[in-house]
Design a protein around this nucleic acid. Structure first.
Lengths: 246, 246
DNA sequence: ACGATTCGTGCAATATCGTGCAAATAAATG
DNA sequence: CATTTATTTGCACGATATTGCACGAATCGT
């Protein structure tokens, strides 16, 4: 087992389970605890985890995943959300992907809006509670912890049996060449499904996503009907994409 | 269980519930009270909480009123939740119904518990986010707004394809004659399904539910394996039901 | 005032850590 | 190909941390 590979494995364990116990990893990988501890020391020196007695924890003490993503770029997300909320017409069926930007979209919905919202994110579904005239369809499946959305074959089948007018899709990368990308293979496939089941796909992109690429491709840019950003006109957009500036 | 992780958990508990009782935490985390007290002393020395006799309180004055504002019902639910959380053993598969009482159950789970939680409540699913070692299965369907749980044939099928060790069932009525009851016809059928797919059914009943009846019958009382209440022994329980007093 | 609970401290058992060192492995060099 | 050099790994050992228990002191509720 290569050292670099082992370190990558440790980091993966950390994001997946939220902690590393040196002893357990030593047993699991059939290595001495010393080796694991050395790795953890190195990774801590690189600033990639927090070394604690007995193992390691994710760097930010207050559980990284959702907590700080909520505070980041809050202003920008509000503007994107306000702009996007106006695109939903009464009576439409709308697929709403997970993500904090879409939570801001919900905050800008008119309180009496009548529509059908389809989502595989329990967080989104829970946030829709205050809207009495909404029909909410929850798509189930195994929760992918990193982004807290349902994934897997059950989720795919759930989407397969419906058709929506709009799809608000979350992406982590948006680039003229690589198109729409995200950080997980299965999630990318699921997002393709969501696009396929929708008439129009809309992406709300904070500035940090523009012109960046994540490992897994969802679709080319012309799968998009509308792109919403706060910045100036994005370069390299296909002519079919409407660009709204929030 | 890592020490640093435990301290983070204590702080999280503090902001969530407004107070920490050393004794309860010791039971919840299966550690001696000494360890908890030592943690609290350390955290107090770091200025992160206020040490008081019996446990700890938040330091910031903003939380102080919240801690005092805890209502009777809330306190009762906390006790039920703490008692119920101890029933979940590592590795088990557990169906968790919706409802605020079960949210309190989640607050008392050990932070590193490894188990599989199945739920059709997006609120419950979202609340499980901080537990890195949990596998979370979300059952989809059309959301029944009143109690914010998925219902309908899709939900039924979702439950039909799994079997759980435990089922924590929410009910609105519990009566020696009419058994377990709830306020919606379809939800009652779904709860029957949840019982059928589980080895043991457990109900957490606040005092106001005892000896009352709602319109729609779920099952007779002997469908229960365990009943958890705060009050004295409930009359008319079948001998097969274990009665825990929180 | 009194019993019950909680607290603090000392202590022993265990677990983990860091360091030095030697063997094993990989990479580089002649 | 043989040898040197650098890196990695496992082990030993003393140092440190953590935990549970015991016991007397302090605190709380009645």
């Amino acid at each position: 087992m290569l050292t670099a590979q082992r370190k990558a494995h440790l980091l993966a364990c950390l994001t997946q389970t939220g902690r590393i116990v040196a002893r357990d990893e030593a047993l699991a990988l059939d290595l001495s605890e010393d080796t694991i501890r050395r790795d953890l020391r190195d990774l801590a020196a690189e600033g990639k985890l927090l070394r604690v007695h007995g193992g390691a924890l994710p760097l930010s003490p207050t559980h990284r995943p959702l907590a700080d993503r909520r505070s980041m770029a809050h202003d920008e997300k509000r503007r994107l959300g306000a702009c996007a909320a106006r695109l939903i017409r009464p009576g439409q069926t709308v697929i709403l992907d997970g993500g904090t930007t879409h939570l801001d979209l919900i905050r800008h919905l008119p309180p009496d809006i009548a529509a059908t919202i389809v989502t595989h994110s329990p967080v989104i579904a829970a946030a829709l509670e205050p809207f009495p005239a909404l029909e909410i369809i929850l798509i189930g499946g195994r929760l992918y912890r990193h982004s807290m959305v349902a994934t897997g074959p059950v989720t795919d089948q759930g989407f397969a049996n419906l058709h929506a007018d709009l799809c608000f899709l979350g992406v982590t990368g948006l680039h003229p060449d690589t198109g729409l990308t995200t950080g997980n293979f299965d999630v990318a496939a699921l997002k393709r499904r969501m696009i396929a089941q929708s008439g129009e796909t809309i992406v709300l992109a904070t500035t940090d996503k523009i012109a960046t690429t994540s490992p897994f491709r969802i679709a080319p840019l012309d799968a998009l009907a509308t792109l919403i950003t706060t910045g100036p006109r994005t370069e390299g957009l296909p002519p079919s994409v409407t660009h709204l500036q929030a």
